[in-house]
Simulated scan of single mutants.
Amino acid sequence: MTLDYETLRLIWWLLLGALLIGFAVMDGFDLGAAILLPFVGRTDAERRVVINSVGPVWEGNQVWLILGGGAIFAAWPMLYAVAFSGFYLAMFLVLCALIIRPVGFKFRSKIHDPRWRRFWDWALFTGGFVPALIFGVAVGNALQGVPFRFDDDLRMIYEGSLLGLLNPFALFCGVVSVLMLTLHGGAFLALKADEPVASRAALIGRQAAMLLVVAFLIGGVCIQLGVDSYRLVGEIDPMGPSNPTLKHVEVVAGGGLRVYGAHLWMIVAPLLALVSAPAAGLLLSRRRPGLAFVASGLAVAGVVATAGVGLFPFLLPSSIAPDHSLTVWDASSSELTLKIMLVATAIFLPLVLAYTAWVYSVLRGRITIAAVNADVSSY
């Protein structure tokens, strides 16, 4: 069966969401573990347990970030141009924070000086906290609309600034992101780390779960009552050319949750978040870290999916030129490009998943204090 252009665009919207969720779930727990590092490890050995729990896998987990960025570049070039140009300084901060991580992992153990190691512990915390915050801020801005437009030659013009991105609602979304990954990191450490690190991580994870539910609900109220939403006026051709200027978009004060009334299947995403987050907290309190980690992963998936489906069919609204907003139907690559990429994805994505599953099966088991003390080559 030959897939038409409309179906290909929808498939690639789903694939983009899956890759972003994959990044949030897979890389999210090691970012969360880094956020928890100074708080769950009170001795050098305990902090080494935290570091060694994510040390063998964090670099592989970042493949999901590369896959997500590559999918945006190839399947949604206009989205790539706007996001990576408009959010350039914010992305630069994320890049600097991510660079700190490998440096911290490698340098921390080089000198047996408490001050040296404490410095790198807080550097690793920064490398986890800053990306978690900025990615949430980016989503918050996407939900509100970003100040960009296109000229007559479809060249993107961005009229915002870094300080403009750090607005109250976007920062609140950043806090939601930090809480989400703190929960996920806490569940991972409860599963992977030795005592007493596991118990401390479980306690913080339970607290993060409760705060995440509250913050998520508050965010929904803000979106419904206080954040402008975007609505297509008239019909848009889902088989039409990739030209985001050929439509009319209406800006509506509030009402951002209306999409869940129009497409009831989309309510699965927020319900998944609202059920899974408290379930993860409950499972942590009952010392079921394996199930808690699965539940926290589902909560992460639900929060990320909520943002994505809440925007549909928009990918990135424009706050200064709403008619130039990017949608699923007018911001994609060509039909041939999407077909070729879909074939490549069908071949290689299962290989990535299979290899990832094999790696985690090999590395299963807890990281103990005795093991890290005995292994001088560990982090």
Rank of each mutant, 00 (worst) to 15 (best):
M1Y: 06
T2W: 00
L3A: 13
L8C: 09
L8E: 08
I11K: 05
W12H: 15
L14K: 00
L15E: 01
L16F: 14
A24C: 07
M26E: 01
D30R: 01
L31Q: 09
G32E: 05
A33N: 00
A33K: 03
A34R: 01
I35N: 00
P38F: 08
F39V: 03
G41R: 13
G41D: 04
E46T: 09
E46A: 09
V49E: 05
I51K: 05
V57L: 11
W58E: 04
V63A: 15
V63F: 04
V63N: 13
G68N: 06
G69A: 15
A74C: 07
M78K: 14
M78F: 14
Y80F: 15
S85L: 07
G86N: 08
L89H: 09
F92Y: 13
I99H: 10
G104L: 08
F105R: 08
R108Q: 14
K110S: 14
H112V: 00
D113A: 13
P114G: 10
R117N: 09
R118V: 02
W120T: 11
W120N: 12
W120A: 10
D121K: 04
A132W: 02
F135S: 04
G136R: 06
V139H: 04
N141S: 09
A142Y: 07
F148V: 10
D152Y: 01
L154V: 08
R155C: 00
M156Y: 00
S161W: 10
L162R: 00
L163I: 12
F169L: 00
L171T: 04
L171M: 13
G174H: 05
V175T: 10
V175R: 06
V178D: 02
L181Y: 06
T182C: 02
A187E: 05
A187V: 02
A187C: 11
F188L: 12
A193E: 09
D194P: 12
E195T: 12
S199L: 07
A201Q: 03
G205Y: 03
R206V: 02
L211A: 15
L212W: 05
L217G: 01
D228A: 13
D228T: 14
D228P: 12
Y230N: 08
Y230L: 09
L232Y: 11
M239D: 13
P241L: 10
K247E: 02
K247C: 10
K247Y: 04
H248K: 13
V252T: 13
G254W: 12
L257D: 02
A262Q: 14
W265T: 13
A280I: 02
G281D: 00
R288L: 10
G290D: 01
G290Q: 02
L298N: 05
G302Y: 07
V303I: 14
A307H: 01
G308T: 04
V309I: 08
F314V: 08
L315W: 05
L316W: 11
P322L: 09
H324C: 09
S334A: 07
T337F: 03
T345E: 06
V352F: 14
Y355S: 07
A357L: 12
A357I: 06
V359S: 01
Y360A: 01
Y360K: 01
Y360S: 03
G365V: 11
G365M: 11
I367Y: 00
I369P: 04
N373R: 15
S378F: 09
Y379M: 11
